[in-house]
């Protein structure tokens, strides 16, 4: 068996899982199980939010190590499920390394995503239904939906431009604030507060917060604390962004 190929396989699997937003313990466990299933004596992956270190002791006493850096990434539940499934299958069947490598690459190539219009509809509905959920009237919900749409467009655009997470959040929050204030000014009987709350729901760091708690519980303190800080800073960015929009409109027009 070519241990270098195995090393690459294991670290690519870990990289795929991490880059689609899996928890730390899942990545570590998957790499370890894979290496043990292929007959390695010791396998010690170490994973923190933007780095994977895979090290194992091959039969015969040779040690191999690889370090991979993880770029900033979003969450793709479908990819996590498929990589997880692949890892289970590989551990159970242990096919040849070439075959395993082929299946791993296939997942990356046949990535299934929703089309852009569907995503925009989703952003619209997140905002609209959250607004209704928090007690908005149907008109508020409709306006909020358009804020959500704007947030969706801005997020996609800025992600493509590699904008920093906090800057991106702040700008989207400010955009929501301005749009909501404008719409509530034009449409009588609508509530700017509820429109803004709905529009912000797509930005709120609920996902990284829950993920952080799961990491802390699994004993990965480094990852957990990093992600909690991430969630808190995102929350502060939202507040700063909307606060800026509110304060500026108040200053200029006194509304």
């Amino acid at each position: 068996m070519d241990y270098d190929v195995l090393l690459n396989l294991a670290s690519d699997l870990g990289y795929g899982l991490m880059a689609s937003g899996a928890e730390i313990y899942r990545v570590e466990e998957s790499i370890q199980r894979l290496l043990i299933a292929y007959g390695m004596e010791k396998a010690d992956p170490f994973v923190i939010p933007n780095c994977i270190i895979v090290s194992f002791l091959a039969p015969g006493g040779k040690t191999l190590t690889q370090v991979r850096r993880i770029p900033s990434h979003g969450t793709d539940v479908d990819l996590i499920e498929r990589y997880n499934d692949l890892c289970r299958t590989l551990c159970r069947e242990t096919p040849s390394l070439e075959e395993a490598r082929r299946r791993l690459l296939q997942i990356g190539q046949t990535r299934r995503t929703y089309s852009f219009p569907v995503l925009l509809v989703a952003y619209w509905s997140v905002a609209a239904f959250s607004c209704l959920f928090f007690g908005g009237s149907p008109v508020d919900g409709l306006c909020s939906g358009f804020c959500g749409l704007a947030v969706g467009l801005a997020l996609t655009g800025m992600t493509r431009l590699n904008a920093n997470l906090f800057f991106r959040t702040m700008l989207c929050a400010a955009l929501t604030g301005f749009l909501a204030l404008g719409m509530s000014h034009l449409i009588p009987g609508s509530h700017s507060q509820l429109i803004i709350i709905g529009g912000l729901m797509a930005l709120v760091p609920g996902l990284s917060f829950t993920n952080a708690i799961r990491d802390v519980m699994a004993g990965d303190m480094v990852a957990g604390v990093t992600k909690i800080a991430d969630a808190l800073l995102t929350g502060v960015s939202i507040a700063l962004g909307t606060g800026f929009a509110l304060a500026l409109t108040r200053l200029l027009w006194g509304v």
Binding site: T75, D76, V77, D78, L79, R112, T113, Y114, V118, L119, V121, A122, Y123, W124, S125, V126, F129, S130, F133, M201, A202, L207
Partner: peptide
């Protein structure tokens, strides 16, 4: 809104 979030996170 959960359904919409589910679509956003693929």
């Amino acid at each position: 809104s959960s359904a919409a979030f589910a679509v956003i996170f693929n």
